[in-house]
Amino acid sequence: MTRIDRPCRPRRRRFGHRFSRTVTAAAALLITLTACGADGTAGPHSGASPKRKTPVWRTDPDSIAALGDSITVGFDACTVLSECREVSWATGTDPRVDSLAHRLVKRPAAHSWNLARTGALMSDLPGQVAAAVRRKPELVTVLIGANDACRPTTDAMTPTAAFRADFARSLTSLRRALPHTQVYVASVPDLLRLWSEGRKNPLGKEVWKLGICGSMLRDPDDLTKPAQDRRAAVRSRVVAYNAALAEVCGKDPLCRFDRSVFDYRFSGRQLSTWDWFHPGAGGQKELAELAFKVITRKES
């Protein structure tokens, strides 16, 4: 019988299992070396995320954008029913005030912008932030909130939750667009002290009858319990606003909240002689000084 040759087949070797174990061991070693490094320390691809550096606050910003309401535009500080931006605590050019821009910015005329608006509420802040973003300032100042409490009645005051939400949205928007810009946030002034000081002037009380801050200043000589309760409610809302500002600002390492504006024991000498409500030039100077101390304070 003729023998039929079979195709040549290589002999099977029993090394597949051993080879698999060798590859697995090598892969494990490679992963260990990658994760820990040759010296056993944590490597670049270990589970631990690298520690981020805390942003450093600069005490000498080169440009400023001021956001806020009538206080920051110097309303009634120079003449009646008029803005007077030259005495603004933030960006004013009048040397008597010695504004932040005058103290900090080398060329304030070109590198400081007053974007505040008379009558602005916290709900207007996002729009002001959008305008500031286009200028890319190194420092943004915020002084806003008095108008949210100064409404015709206490029922018309801005709810604290809405106030907080609008401020948080504004700060988030600013931070996304300008991650390195610093933010100074002044507290809302103490409106109860404003009533206490302004009511000492008979002419001031007559001006208040025109409808200025009715929730607090209406019937300034009424000392009955309902009137006192109304004023206490306004002050309580201001305190709540300031707590919201501090809380939101405190979560941002490049934001500083300044409570001293609320705590400042101003007198009638710092008020406008036109309405005994807004800061006059003397009050603007004090605001500039308070802000300068906070902005130039060294990190502890």
Score class of each variant (00 low, 15 high):
residue 17 H to T: 10
residue 103 R to E: 06
residue 230 R to H: 00
residue 27 A to W: 03
residue 106 K to D: 13
residue 295 I to W: 11
residue 276 W to H: 10
residue 45 H to F: 11
residue 10 P to W: 11
residue 286 E to N: 14
residue 234 V to L: 03
residue 54 T to M: 09
residue 178 L to P: 04
residue 249 C to E: 08
residue 219 D to E: 07
residue 102 H to A: 14
residue 230 R to Y: 02
residue 139 L to I: 03
residue 238 V to P: 08
residue 79 T to C: 07
residue 220 P to Q: 03
residue 112 S to G: 01
residue 33 L to R: 06
residue 236 S to R: 12
residue 65 A to R: 03
residue 177 A to V: 04
residue 32 T to F: 11
residue 184 Y to A: 08
residue 221 D to L: 04
residue 74 G to H: 08
residue 60 D to G: 14
residue 117 R to Q: 08
residue 85 R to W: 04
residue 86 E to N: 15
residue 192 L to E: 13
residue 274 W to G: 03
residue 269 R to T: 12
residue 169 R to Y: 07
residue 243 A to H: 14
residue 99 S to M: 00
residue 267 S to N: 01
residue 257 F to I: 04
residue 166 D to A: 13
residue 203 L to E: 13
residue 64 I to P: 03
residue 167 F to I: 11
residue 80 V to Q: 12
residue 19 F to Q: 08
residue 50 P to M: 04
residue 135 R to L: 07
residue 99 S to F: 00
residue 23 V to L: 13
residue 152 P to I: 05
residue 131 A to Y: 00
residue 204 G to Q: 05
residue 277 F to H: 01
residue 74 G to S: 06
residue 136 K to F: 06
residue 5 D to K: 14
residue 13 R to N: 12
residue 294 V to K: 13
residue 41 T to K: 06
residue 175 R to K: 12
residue 141 T to D: 07
residue 196 S to L: 07
residue 242 N to Y: 09
residue 113 W to G: 06
residue 292 F to V: 13
residue 6 R to Y: 10
residue 228 Q to L: 07
residue 89 W to T: 05
residue 201 N to V: 11
residue 224 T to A: 02
residue 245 L to T: 12
residue 104 L to K: 05
residue 118 T to M: 13
residue 124 D to W: 08
residue 239 V to C: 08
residue 66 A to K: 05
residue 285 K to Y: 10
residue 192 L to S: 13
residue 159 P to W: 13
residue 221 D to W: 02
residue 115 L to D: 01
residue 156 A to Q: 14
residue 259 R to S: 15
residue 240 A to I: 13
residue 226 P to V: 00
residue 108 P to K: 01
residue 296 T to D: 07
residue 188 V to Y: 06
residue 197 E to H: 02
residue 74 G to V: 07
residue 226 P to C: 00
residue 134 R to H: 08
residue 109 A to I: 06
residue 279 P to A: 00
residue 156 A to P: 09
residue 298 K to L: 10
residue 177 A to F: 03
residue 49 S to G: 12
residue 243 A to K: 14
residue 279 P to K: 00
residue 220 P to W: 05
residue 112 S to Q: 01
residue 55 P to H: 06
residue 286 E to I: 14
residue 273 T to Y: 09
residue 299 E to K: 08
residue 123 S to M: 14
residue 22 T to H: 03
residue 293 K to A: 15
residue 39 D to M: 10
residue 6 R to L: 14
residue 126 P to W: 02
residue 270 Q to Y: 09
residue 69 D to N: 08
residue 30 L to I: 10
residue 281 A to D: 15
residue 73 V to R: 03
residue 132 A to D: 02
residue 83 E to R: 09
residue 138 E to T: 10
residue 129 V to H: 00
residue 196 S to D: 11
residue 178 L to Y: 04
residue 150 C to R: 03
residue 46 S to V: 02
residue 149 A to T: 02
residue 220 P to S: 05
residue 266 F to I: 01
residue 61 P to S: 03
residue 289 E to G: 15
residue 190 D to K: 02
residue 248 V to R: 06
residue 36 C to H: 12
residue 286 E to D: 15
residue 24 T to N: 12
residue 63 S to H: 08
residue 280 G to Y: 03
residue 226 P to F: 00
residue 44 P to K: 00
residue 185 V to D: 04
residue 49 S to H: 14
residue 268 G to D: 05
residue 275 D to C: 00
residue 287 L to C: 09
residue 120 A to S: 09
residue 255 C to A: 12
residue 5 D to C: 11
residue 154 T to Q: 01
